[in-house]
């Protein structure tokens, strides 16, 4: 089962094997969900129980494999975050964007988000950013508002 490329160099002995964390999360998650099958009728619960049990068994196998790998001092070379700080920033940006769309409306938020995000994450050309913003947001507005009459979350000043 250890067919994937492994890296014998214990270059990152400080970190915990990400596979181990994944295995624990899978086992715990499936376990919690499994407790919720108790009030389902028999046939309804059958496949969910099967799948969750399978997930738990597979998760345990994965944890076991990590332990084995740990003992042999071979760690899979998995790098989860290339840049953890940026990752958190991106997730925050996406969360704020979605929340703001719901609150302030789609076009306002998008018109602000695109230049800000592009700028913050390294595209430092004012002209380029604004032009792209205009083309994209304007294009969406033309297609959705003028052509299709389709509603995206309404702007706060129009409600």
């Amino acid at each position: 089962m250890n067919s994937e490329p492994t890296n014998t160099a214990a270059e990152r002995s400080g970190g915990i094997d990400p596979d181990l964390i994944a295995g624990v999360v899978i086992v715990l998650g499936a376990g919690v969900l499994l407790t919720r099958t108790t009030d389902m009728p028999g046939m309804t619960a059958l496949l969910p129980v099967t799948m969750l049990s399978a997930l738990i068994i597979l998760g345990i196998l994965m944890i076991g494999r990590c332990a084995l790998r740990h003992r042999r001092r071979t760690t899979a070379s998995i790098k989860v975050f290339d840049n953890a700080k940026r990752f958190v920033g991106i997730i925050a940006a996406i969360a704020i964007y979605v929340a703001a769309v719901a609150l302030l409306g789609f076009y306002t938020t998008t018109a602000v988000m695109i230049p800000v995000v592009a700028w913050c994450f390294g595209y430092r050309s004012l002209k380029g950013v604004l032009l792209a913003d205009l083309i994209f947001t304007g294009g969406i507005a033309i297609v959705f508002v003028l052509l299709m009459g389709q509603e995206l979350p309404t702007e706060f000043f129009l409600r």
């Binding site: 988000m113 995000v117 592009a118 994450f121 390294g122 595209y123 792209a132």
Partner: peptide
Amino acid sequence: PRPLLGAI
């Protein structure tokens, strides 16, 4: 540019 593409 990648950041722009990502945002879009």
